[in-house]
Nucleic acid binder design. Structure first.
Lengths: 243, 243
DNA sequence: GACTTTTAAATGTCAGACAAATGAAAATTT
DNA sequence: AAATTTTCATTTGTCTGACATTTAAAAGTC
């Protein structure tokens, strides 16, 4: 953890980078306590506010956690899947909203990833996950449901599908993508007719999953992707000439 | 962008959250200039160092950039695919190293995602990408290559395969996963025999891609996954009894 | 008009101080 | 002696005020 000055960046950025490298390289292991802010100030020959800014940068990435009081300090954080997942959601959401990624592109990516999980889910799905999916299908069929609630249920349904793969790395990657797309999905108004269609596809997916029929799950997901993109396309058309 | 106090967290965390919400909600658009640190201090009724800590948190996530001098300040950053990608690499790397994700799990996730891209790549691959892949295959066949260089070339090869899908969302997601696995891959010693096998599979993939034969690409990737996992398994065996 | 100088505004950094939390040791009580 | 309370040192959180540095625009000069 030595002060390796890179380019001419802020001191706080340099220090954050140095500490981050120490963590990534394993020099600082999980739950290890960093030197106190005063000690870091001495080591890096900077003031305490500068050290603090560096530590806040790391805290923002969930790399460290801090605790006040005696025997307190900054500790290397074990990055949980949840932390990683929420960071991914934020990043993906911003990427989608700020870079004007088209709905088609996002949709294609999402279903491509989801289909990658599907074959694994077909092998490994538990009764629990099937129950979750069927419960969400039931919820989706309730007449009084708002569009937002319908979409939220949709997310839960697909998360269950993804979690069925029993691979936390896949779950974390994909769940981020699915959730990040929710705002875009919310912009689509679901008519009673389109909900019916989606529920039918969800049922087809769940049935196939129960039968461990990977191929049918795959084709159903392809159909769902096409249908979703068609819906988005129709909404865009309608907006252009709202006669 | 009002001061909405959440729980009993640090002030800097609260402020960072408030500003982040303003960005995500679109209240602050790309390239918009935030109020100066002094003005933010007044608005949130905190001191400048506290505001600065909040801003550093946001800077760590590439949500803002700062510029010194007159007409300088903090600006909402357009999150580039590159920024998102490097964040994803960091997060994925830490997740893999700190959570003791098994090689099998990581490998399975990686190839599942990669196969998701493959069918799209088969449709859209350009001559350029094919050329890159063949160049890397050639590099991999050079006898003097170190294991690290072999792995690096492997990453480049697979990135080209993923980029062939012409879907930046997929590229950003998957490239992170592939790169994060490199340290794990580096731990595998590639004998001349195993390199030969891998090169043969890479060639099979590239040929199939050139012929736009999605199915063969898929099966070749399945074979490559199995072979990679077998190699890792053998290495683990060898370590247990290095007779 | 083109160039140079000045200036004001903003971030970057520093120093010192106090507040608040917290665990451990010391003192007190039972 | 055991249990409880008090004290205390350590560490982060926050504030105040100041100065350094950068930078673009305004003012001045040729």
């Amino acid at each position: 953890m030595k002060a390796a000055p890179r380019k001419t960046a802020d001191l706080s950025a340099q220090i954050a980078h140095a500490i981050r490298d120490a963590i990534v390289s394993g020099e600082l292991i999980v739950d290890a306590r960093l030197p106190s802010e005063a000690e870091l100030s001495d080591q890096f020959k900077v003031s305490r506010p500068t050290v603090r800014e560096a530590l806040k940068r790391l805290a923002a990435q969930s790399l460290i956690r801090t605790q006040r009081g005696a025997s307190g300090g900054a500790f290397v954080n074990r990055l949980s899947f949840e932390d990683a997942y929420s960071q991914q959601v934020t990043t993906s959401t911003l990427l989608l909203s700020m870079n004007a990624v088209s709905f088609d592109t996002a949709c294609e990516a999402r279903y491509a990833l989801e289909r990658a999980c599907a074959s694994l889910s077909a092998q490994r799905r538990t009764a629990d996950q099937l129950a979750t999916m069927r419960a969400e299908i039931f919820r989706q069929s309730q007449p009084g449901l708002t569009d937002e609630a319908f979409c939220a249920s949709d997310v839960t349904f697909h998360r269950a599908l993804v979690d069925g793969a029993e691979n936390p790395v896949l779950s974390y990657q994909l769940a981020g993508a699915v959730e990040a797309m929710q705002p875009l999905m919310n912009m689509i108004t679901f008519t009673a007719r389109s909900r019916e269609e989606i529920i039918a596809l969800h049922t087809r997916i769940t049935d196939a999953l129960e039968a461990r029929d990977a191929e049918t799950v795959d084709t159903a997901l392809v159909d769902l992707e096409h249908y979703t993109r068609q819906l988005a396309h129709d909404v865009a058309e309608q907006k252009r000439k709202p006669a």
